[in-house]
Design a protein around this nucleic acid. Structure first.
Lengths: 232, 232
DNA sequence: CTGTTCATCTCGTAA
DNA sequence: TTACGAGGTGAACAG
């Protein structure tokens, strides 16, 4: 990885056009050819970048009109297969170093949506007494339903789980319910939209369609003994 | 901005748990307190990070069990208001430098959805003869429709514009049409789904619902003289 | 290979 | 401040 701190001008031409006026920035060239342009603020997203696979070439600092050499140190041009280009005009370099990092062993995660699904499928009693799991990832023609269960009265229930409950999730569950209710062997099927947090508009849409909303508490699901409130 | 290249172990505890085993990585500390941990590959997303506002403190390298100093150089602890923490155990430092970058003038973009909407509203003649704009961002109870227009026969048309036409865009337009068609002053309203590219499944769903699909050509809309083909 | 879904999404913008 | 939608979304996973 090569790290450069320099005054620079950056132009991206591709899916859109983007231009960065002259300023001092951090330029990161990774081993896979990708390039990142970072400012001293903002979050993890670079101001501008080129994703791999891509290739970096260096253009001589020739003025496009006069054809003469300019005072600029160099122009880096990064291109990918789709023809998108990132042009970095480097005006002066404050720091330049290269480092051998090797391949990274990678990130280990815990607590994503898959875990919520696993937990809830094991704790259907959190939804009410007598609930039973039919199966996780219950297949339909348009994709798998997160959980198919039966409630205390034996009626089929399709459960869609999200970390954050937004309108898209309600649409998704609606499509599943429409399909499942055509299947006479399990119809009628009702829906539950379960998430760690549910946006108001998503709740309104769900309610309008007769879908129940449930807010999941990760810690409560994880705790084996204490489920503070039955939902049904 | 401080740039450090070092062997390190990283642990994040917050919205989820994440762990990075020991390896050599680039650590970026920005002026706003945010920290990024980058490997020499992957795209622009860091392996691990903490977004601002947050604060970095340094812990002495004390072993948690024995209470004695360990051989580790130091532990950086980054915390935010929500109590999420990023702990970086720095084992040895290969590079360490600080740079004054100043505030960045920022990015200038061109070619996003807003431009498409602006262009199309000015070039409704690209859809057919005699079309007229009612208004952009036509308000409904569930949000504004991108464009409301009238076609050559005076019928109302709701146009939803996306850069990439996917299934949720069709769902969105469907909801608008349902609402608009309850309004007797403008009903019947038909729909047009306009995008630079439309995914096959989105096209199927749109067609099934009687919504016309239009592929927008950015350059063609921008050009004043030449509209190669009328769409209706 | 395409298509779909998740994300510590990030980021803008409007109410 | 919060809520919502777009993104050069990226990244993982299934078909």
């Amino acid at each position: 990885m090569r790290i450069v701190v320099a005054r620079c001008i950056v132009d991206y031409q591709g899916k859109l056009s983007a231009h960065l006026p002259e300023a001092r920035r951090l330029l990161m060239m990774k081993a896979d050819g990708s390039v990142l342009v970072h400012a001293d603020g903002g979050s993890y997203k670079p101001l501008n970048w080129m994703s791999p696979p891509c290739w970096l070439t260096e253009e001589p600092p020739v003025d496009q009109e006069s054809g003469e050499l300019t005072s600029e140190a160099m122009i880096w041009v990064v291109t990918n297969k789709a023809g998108e280009t990132l042009r970095i005009t480097v005006l002066d370099i404050e720091h330049d170093s290269s480092h051998e990092l090797g391949t990274d062993p990678g990130l280990v995660k815990d607590g994503v949506e898959a875990h919520l699904q696993e937990l809830l499928s094991q704790r259907l009693d959190a939804l009410g007494q007598g609930w039973s799991l039919v199966r996780r990832e219950y297949p339909t023609a348009i994709g798998p339903v997160d959980i198919l269960a039966r409630d205390g009265r034996g009626q089929a229930v399709a459960i869609e789980i999200k970390r954050r409950g937004e309108i898209d999730g309600v649409e998704q569950l609606t499509r599943y319910l429409e399909l499942l209710n055509r299947d006479s062997t399990i119809a009628p099927v009702r829906g539950i939209f379960a998430a760690q947090a549910i946006k108001p508009q998503a709740r309104v849409l769900a309610t309008d369609r007769g879908i129940d909303c449930v807010v999941l508490d990760y810690d409560e699901l994880r705790g084996m003994d204490d489920v503070s409130a039955r939902l049904f």
